[in-house]
Design a protein around this nucleic acid. Sequence first.
RNA 1: GUGCCUGUAGCUCAACUGGAUAGAGUACCGGCCUUCGAAGCCGGGUGUUGGGGGUUCGAGUCCCUCCAGGCGCGCCA
Length: 586
Amino acid sequence: MKHQIQKMVSLALDRIAAEGVMPADQIPQPVIERTRDSRHGDFACNVAMVLAKLAKRRPRELAESLTAALPDSQVVKKVEIAGPGFINFHLSSNAYHGLVATIIERGHQFGRSDMGAGKRVQVEFVSANPTGPLHVGHGRGAAYGAVVADLLQAVGFEVHREYYVNDAGRQMDILAASVWLRYLELCDEELQFPANGYRGDYVWDIAAALHREHGEAYKCSTREVFDDIVPDEPQGGDKEAHVDALIARSRQLLGGNRYRYLFELALNTILDDIREDLELFGVHYEEWFSELSLSEAGSVNQTIERLRETGYLYESEGAHWFRSTRFGDEKDRVVVRDNGQTTYFASDIAYHLDKLSRGFDRVIDVWGADHHGYIPRVKAALEALGEDPSRLDVLLVQFANLYQGGEKMQMSTRSGSFVTLRQLRKEVGRDAARFFYVMRKCEQHLDFDLDLAKSQSSDNPVYYVQYAHARVCSVMRQASEKGVSVAISEGTDNLDRLIEPHELALLSRLSEYPEVVEAAALQEEPHQLTHYLRQLANDFHTYYNAHQFLAEDQSLRDGRVKLILAVQQVLRNGLNLLGVSAPENM
RNA sequence: GUGCCUGUAGCUCAACUGGAUAGAGUACCGGCCUUCGAAGCCGGGUGUUGGGGGUUCGAGUCCCUCCAGGCGCGCCA
């Protein structure tokens, strides 16, 4: 509908331009928007005000000429000029009859489009280090990334969802060492657990599994392990150096094979847990991309060599630096440490290079907002290597704060005192969690009220929307129990019986749905869809209370049943895009 | 100190990316169930859009400045 009106206005603009009112080569695409206030009609156009200066005419005067030049239309009943120069379009009552038929006919396809024209988009999200279970902070990135991906797919992009597994870095070694030390404790060794080690219960679990299956085959004495190790922080030393020394000692005492077994046991246990967790959260990936595979294939070293060839690499204090300041970064960045190890940044450049080389038209990263300082250096590296950095889009997701009983809950990964995504799901359920996570713009801090998400009351927006869907189902059940026929007629038959203001409002709302999906997808803003669904549910509940759907009058009933079936379909489609179920009863 | 993000009704947030009188939910008060599910609906008031300046027909939205909060500023990932 929007496009139809836009075409009409464009045509009118061409016509008056031909009359020499203004230069024909400077005519913009007119903006059509839905009115906020129904007294202003259904759609409004501001083009007369925008072009007033160019045409050297008063806005209202220009609007007069424009409306006179508008072509006739079946769907537009009345055109008015209002305010400073708005052109308001009032639709005729049958304008949306085709819409209802279309929704019913297209079913779950309604709202989808091919606007993306099959362009390939890669969306990387969550990508949490496999050093512990996912917590509620990751949950937001998971829900947000999943919905953005689904939205893009819905409007015709070919979407590739990917999880980057950081299975190569130092953090993984710290995890392995942590597991081993806990294992030693299970073997009745007494030791001082490092300040920088991972302390969560899951570390004990992995250690216990190792102990169960291999007895004391991995045991060493505490003396062997800690002999000559630099002191830890509580003893006045450096916690980083301490833990690095413990890692080196683990490798040395266990030997390559046993260390690798331990490392992979920890990695796989946690990764399996993460996979299952996300699966149960309704988040699916096309690919789990291993960082380790990058370095094993030599990509990281190749990337560093390519960078060296560009001349933007230099040596200083024994390390190799990338001159990212050349490309607007705050400071230069190390890619190879003085101990010869490549940095996380180095593999990340290699990874992004790999993504771009796979031929995606667009690459989207969903990151926690605490990583925002990282964007300039990644883009700098891509630019230095001759890639177009604008192909990469980084979406930052702010933290989610959990509230319970009005109290903010504090969390920290290292200390192990965090609420896991799994706990949250068990607590509030998948539907509420998914919905709450995407209810806010991603750059907003999210206050996640556990009590509200759990509550089965009208306060809870998830139930509000789901209830609207269940209500339609219930009406249809009632009809069959009462023996009332609700087999609907063909096409647009009987839709002319829909004349109540509530019905017209509902029709207009339904017509918005494809626009909302498109806007939410292109702007990467799932919250637009949650807001829309609440409005649609509200329109429906209002209608429900005002009118009897299963009317005596057969043709009236037919029209109304068609309308509420269309509502049901759109609610279902929208919830489905959010990864939230559309229950038939509650 | 410096860069990014945020600041809108008592609280949690919208505002179609520059449009008309800034809107929802919640909280508070009142009304609506012998008729399709009251997990619902209807009515009632709430604003110096953090402050100040600027840009223009028009600013919550863009620019400058100040104030407040969050995050970042490692040869960690």
